[in-house]
Nucleic acid binder design. Sequence first.
RNA 1: CGCCGAGUAGCGCAGUCUGGUUAGCGCGCCUGCUUUGGGAGCAGGAGGUCGUGGGUUCGAAUCCCAUCUCGGCGACCA
Length: 507
Amino acid sequence: MLIVYTQATQVKRESYASGGYQLFMEVKDIEEEKGKDLERAKWYTDIVQQAELADYAPVKGCMVIRPYGYALWENVQKALDQMIKDTGHQNAYFPLFIPESFMQKEKEHVEGFAPECAVVTHGGGKKLEEPLIVRPTSETIINHMFAKWVQSWRDLPLLINQWANVVRWEMRTRLFLRTTEFLWQEGHTAHASEDEAEEEAQKMLAVYKTLAEDWLALPVLTGEKTDNERFRGAVRTYCIEALMRDGKALQAGTSHFLGQNFAKAFDIKFQSAGGDLEYAWQTSWGVSTRLIGAIVLGHGDEKGLVLPPKIAPIQVVIVPIYKTDDEKAQVTKYCEQIVLALKDHARVHADMRDQYTPGWKFNHWEQKGVPIRLNIGPKDVANNVVEIVRRDNFEKMRGVKQTDLANEIPKLLLAVQKNIFERALKFRQESTVKINDYKAFKKTLDEKNGFIEASWCGSGDCEQTVKEDSKATIRLIPFGNDRTPMNDKCVHCGKPAKWQVVFARAY
RNA sequence: CGCCGAGUAGCGCAGUCUGGUUAGCGCGCCUGCUUUGGGAGCAGGAGGUCGUGGGUUCGAAUCCCAUCUCGGCGACCA
């Protein structure tokens, strides 16, 4: 079973859509899948635009994050920022421009990023003496500063985070998932010992997992990246991986143990308690606006977005229903009362626009993924009740007493949050298979994608061959005992297996 | 950057092959009336340098060249 976006339905509903045609998905058999990738891909870009999350900017690969999308990002930001601060980090801001020479100090790092860097060659009408790189990530400039700030073991650990935009000149872009410029946070830390830095990298990975699961309602796998997928300049890269509803994986966040690579390149040295001069041990970690894409692809359905209540810009939308002026006056007054009663318990919005019909508003707010809707008409006013509709399962609750709302709505929001997490978890469990035969491996990918747990020899070349042949990559090597191979042979080459890993086609 | 598809009103498209009055259609928008518990109806109206720049021609949305952008697939990546 797969979710597809069908052309037929699109045409049928075309005339009703506010910004073009209506989005629609249906569950269909795998056999009917051929050639549907385009529709599924289009579903994503359409929904992002129609729900007013983002729009294309006049510059190639760039997007405008619209108010509704930005409000969503702000809520993600707020939750994560608090967790970053709670784990002892401080926010700071470093410049957008980096001297070109800085990028070249760490060998692997420059090799990894040079091709995708935007370079400023002119300023003030003159050619610059040294070109400036628009940061693709800030390791170099931050570490340049760290070298000045770190002298003694007493200066450590240095725990810094910055919220910023970065630019990577990508070949192919998609709204939120991969844009030339994107917003993110990047944490950069320096520690006196290897163990402490390792612990920090793991700690922040755990924070990301909490953010994804508790706030975005997206279950994630955690683990380590293979050499091929490692951040250029890092010793080890850890990641959280989520499964989207079309069965493709999405890397939702990374945390890197940098060892002393950058410390050596940027000369970050400190004098230890024992008097020795030592290089600092470092980490860096980041999540980006790609998370918005993860929410869309992880929860969205045939009607549009489904937002996790905890981060939804609007948690409860009120749609008034009336015919006569008299009814309108009554209903309006009643809605105002309800907004007052709820405003301390939820982010509530009453859509009092006269020019749209209730039916239009139902669809509009469903498309935007608002978790709970209250339908309020004359009958409800007369009985002092409201009708509640859940976005996640369309369950309707009629005749809910107005006096119970302040109590019930927060509970209901939690229930929606829990339900969409569990739904996503169930989907992931059903989409995860253990395979030790390469033919079955490819068959599974072609039929339904999903996560494939398999044993692997540990060779980067072998991994690369699998990628070219099947379009699947190793998303991660699990932690601990989970990485112990289940079979003695590699699923692809048959050589002795080193690890149990998770394969998937990814965004 | 390679291959494919597309750029015509705010959105979705027709017209292009085969050059020829005033460039159409649906939705949206504006005005009025009527409606409102799942994307309402009728009437009237506004809105276009046909992506951009060259060229061919008496005449170009249409043909030729160049270029930009968007989408898909591939190589690269959060």
